[in-house]
């Protein structure tokens, strides 16, 4: 019981740090790092649920694999947007991205 609570609490703190990063950073790559941290925390929770609650249930491990896929996809599409933004505007600062509204 204590192990499960410890692991889930670590996941909660990592999720909090991820939210801080995603909201406070101005650079697109740093925002992506915050999102990666949140996804990592979610995967830690899933593995803890598998290990301590349902070790015979493999759909939870499947969910972790989907989480890893989402991390990779987020990085790929994020970097593509960063590349295009850098080509056209010369920076990936998201405070300057308000010109997308115009």
């Amino acid at each position: 019981m204590i192990e499960l609570i410890v692991v889930l609490s670590v996941g909660a703190v990592l999720f909090g740090i991820g939210i801080y990063g995603a909201l406070s950073q101005t650079n697109l790559v740093m925002i992506m790092m915050g999102i990666e941290l949140m996804l990592g925390a979610a995967m830690l929770n899933l593995v803890a649920f598998w290990r301590y609650l349902h070790p015979e249930e493999y759909s939870i491990q499947m969910f972790v694999l989907v989480g890893m896929t989402v991390m990779a996809l987020e990085a790929a599409v994020g970097f593509a947007i960063a590349t295009q933004r850098f080509r056209t505007k010369g920076s990936v600062e998201m405070e300057e991205a308000s010109d997308l509204k115009e």
Partner: peptide, 20 residues
Amino acid sequence: MSHQKKLSIGTSLVAGAMVI
């Protein structure tokens, strides 16, 4: 390289504390 610090610290603390 950061902005809206108070909002982000507040949101992260509230989210983390709620989950814990």
